[in-house]
Design a protein around this nucleic acid. Structure first.
Lengths: 184, 184
DNA sequence: GTCTATATAGAGATAGAC
DNA sequence: GTCTATCTCTATATAGAC
């Protein structure tokens, strides 16, 4: 998936839209090709397998997670670190709702991640998880972190959130983050 | 799906386990039949379509939601109503993790619900949503409710929560509910 | 880089014997 | 109530022409 390849970029956009709406397993390459007005073979010219296409669709989100994790890693104070992560994650999740919906909610993504060209992605996510929890591994804290992360994709299953303006949704997520992981 | 039909009950259990692990779209009737040690035709004798099987798997959870909604409907005070719903939902979600995971996280369920033998189920869920929000429809409140509900299935995407003891997880969910929707 | 055509496998679903 | 066998359709994926 070369940089700046317009056809490939277009495939990724269309595929993401369909993955978010119907799930990865519920979206065939035929549907993607139809939505693009090309044939399946044209799609296969850009991505060797469906799995590679899924990985390419998710890659930007994984990169964002990796960047947020790297930034948070350098903040020793737990409260400040959580504040940074909550703000980053809220902005990222709202800024690209569809990819976060697929990444956080679609069970089929697990299979792609296990395929282990994506081990870096899972490692970054695990580290982010640990950075949010901090040294206190009590069940109460673990549940707070888990429910906050899960809630980053709440807009997918909630019609009211789905149509909410970006600013309101982002502010709401930050507020929830502070209620659960603050004060900071 | 007759009551007390042992084979049908067994099919539902096995199907739920596979749906929760691999998603509805990622689970074929062949896989379900193999896990049961029977053929596809035997499964089709109990459920006319895959969609009917999915609906039957989810029915107990929809009934629980309907009961919790009916109970909450009679509580006029918002704080007390939220307290009741948070406790009910936490107990239900932890008591049957797999079915809540499928119901809240699987995009393929949306298609089954749209099929509209299940309109009662969506109506109950919509009312529950409204009962949790109350008269205050500000974005902040809507996001709190949406993220809490989404978080009821957090155990699916979080290995630490997946292995957490029922009591700890339920208490954690209640605590998150109070932090987001309390005090009561 | 996109096409037609096809290989192969598996999906959902049904018929009819036992 | 379960089986074998089969239908039809669609899935992923590939070969090779243009």
């Amino acid at each position: 998936m070369p940089r700046g390849d317009a056809p490939a970029e277009l495939i990724l956009e269309v595929a993401l839209r369909l993955f978010a709406r119907n799930g990865v397993a519920g979206t065939s390459l035929q549907q993607i090709a139809d939505a693009l007005g090309v044939t399946k073979a044209a799609v296969y010219h850009h991505f060797r397998t469906k799995s590679a296409l899924v990985a390419a669709v998710l890659a930007p989100a994984f990169d964002e997670v990796a960047r947020a994790t790297a930034a948070a890693r350098t903040v020793p104070d737990l409260a400040q670190r959580r504040r940074l992560l909550v703000h980053d994650l809220a902005a990222n999740a709202v800024g690209n709702r569809a990819v976060y919906a697929v990444m956080l909610r679609d069970v089929a993504v697990g299979a792609v991640l296990a395929e282990d060209s994506a081990r870096a992605a899972t490692a970054a996510f695990d580290e982010l998880h640990a950075l949010l929890i901090g040294p206190d591994g009590t069940p109460a804290t673990v549940v707070r972190v888990g429910m906050f992360l899960s809630g980053l994709a709440a807009h997918t299953a909630d019609a009211t959130l789905a149509t909410m303006a970006d600013d309101d949704l982002r502010a709401g997520i930050v507020e929830v983050g502070e209620a659960l992981l603050g004060p900071w």
